[in-house]
């Protein structure tokens, strides 16, 4: 835990017009951390991930990557994003490419690897998520769970330092949730640094090493999963968890 943090979010705020979605968010991601972000719908979880990835521009505050503020003017967001992977709820696979090309596009175009090397890398990660047999399929020919596993392989092929997940299983039929979660579980076990927005409480409790509970654009409570789930300190956390555990 004494390692240098990879990511530091400092006093981050975000408003859309007059609507303040995030307020003074502070937290740190260290190498190997597996952090779950939970919270009710509209609490700003996606917005926080998108601000970290600079898909949204924070209104105030800083996002530091190895100490460097990436929101500062003059920082190249593309070079930064290449080191921070993101997996979306809606997969966002490139529809004009097959599975293999999806996973090679980043390594070839952004990292400038040779096609052969990119291909080897893509196959390695597709194998890891169990999608290697499907390299010739187009995204529209895959099930949701398969698409999400390809999306994870695409992100991994960039060999990022952190991987952000925004509700990776929310768009999936219940029987496909398991296959994606098991890939994520293996990733966590392999030491990947992960920041996961999720409604899967079992994942948050059993896989992640830290849980952040967000409510109305602020971090309401954070801690070790066992502690937070068993003895939530804040009334809002308690209310949220009891609602979730009941259902």
């Amino acid at each position: 835990m004494d390692q240098q943090p990879i990511l530091e979010v400092q006093h981050l705020s975000k408003s859309f017009g007059s609507h303040q979605v995030l307020r003074d968010i502070d937290f740190t991601v260290r190498p190997g951390d597996v952090t779950s972000i939970i919270g009710s719908s509209g609490s700003g979880k996606s917005t926080l991930l998108r601000c970290i990835n600079l898909l949204e521009t924070p209104s105030q505050g800083a996002v530091r990557f190895h100490g460097e503020d990436v929101t500062a003017p003059g920082v190249n967001p593309s070079a930064y994003r290449a080191k921070v992977g993101m997996v979306f709820q809606s997969f966002n696979l490139f529809n004009n490419m097959n599975v293999l090309e999806n996973c090679m596009a980043g390594p070839v175009k952004v990292l400038r690897l040779s096609r052969e090397e990119a291909r080897r890398r893509a196959l390695r990660y597709l194998e890891q998520v169990g999608m290697a047999p499907y390299i010739k399929a187009k995204p529209r020919q895959l099930s949701g769970g398969q698409k999400q596993r390809v999306a994870i392989a695409r992100a991994l092929a960039m060999e990022p330092e952190v991987l952000l997940f925004d509700e990776p299983t929310s768009a999936l039929d219940p029987e496909m949730v398991g296959e994606v979660l098991s890939v994520m579980k293996d990733l966590a076990a392999s030491g990947m640094t992960m920041l996961v927005v999720t409604h899967e409480m079992a994942f948050a409790r059993d896989v992640s090493r830290r849980v952040v509970f967000m409510s109305d654009g602020v971090i309401c409570e954070e801690g070790e999963p066992a502690e937070l789930f068993a003895h939530p300190r804040q009334p809002r956390t308690r209310e949220f968890l009891s609602r979730f555990m009941a259902s």
Binding site: S78, N92, L93, G106, V110, M158
Partner: peptide
Amino acid sequence: DPGQTEGARAIGM
């Protein structure tokens, strides 16, 4: 779909 752009941005394109 704007998701296509976001997917591309997210891998650093």
